[in-house]
Amino acid sequence: MSRAWLDLWVGLFVVAGIGALMFLALKVGSMNTVNKADSYQVIAHFDNIGGLKVRAPVKSAGVVVGRVTAINFDDKSYEAEVTISLDKRYAFPRDSSASILTSGLLGEQYIGLEAGGDSLKLANGDRVKLTQSAVVLENLIGQFLYSKAQEGAPQ
């Protein structure tokens, strides 16, 4: 095989390889990791985070506006301390509320951010004060049984 053909085949191979990588990068994956430079961090305390995990999405009106970057336990207040990284393009009022929701019945858990009415916006390092914990199925069933027992109790 002549040198020219060899070069051509190897060139095609390299182009195909890079093409496959580009396909994977653009069509299959996305840059989900929020870049530190174009995001700001806020903190939210929850009584119970349920099954929330690091890298879970933060959605407002169903649109992904950020990611959970860290989950810690605060041993002063005995609450979960969730660090959220929000996209710099989106600003939220100071009194916005965060709640832990589940997509679908068995789906993953995410944080829903509900905008408030304050004119001041959340800034880096701020804390979201209004939070709602995850719904834990066992607690829900417990409450239901308890209220049923109350109803049926002899007066």
Binding site: L21, L24, V28, G29, N32, P57, V64
Partner: peptide
């Protein structure tokens, strides 16, 4: 939404 460029690819 689920496949991350840095983490997975």
């Amino acid at each position: 939404a689920k496949v991350d460029f840095g983490e997975d690819i």
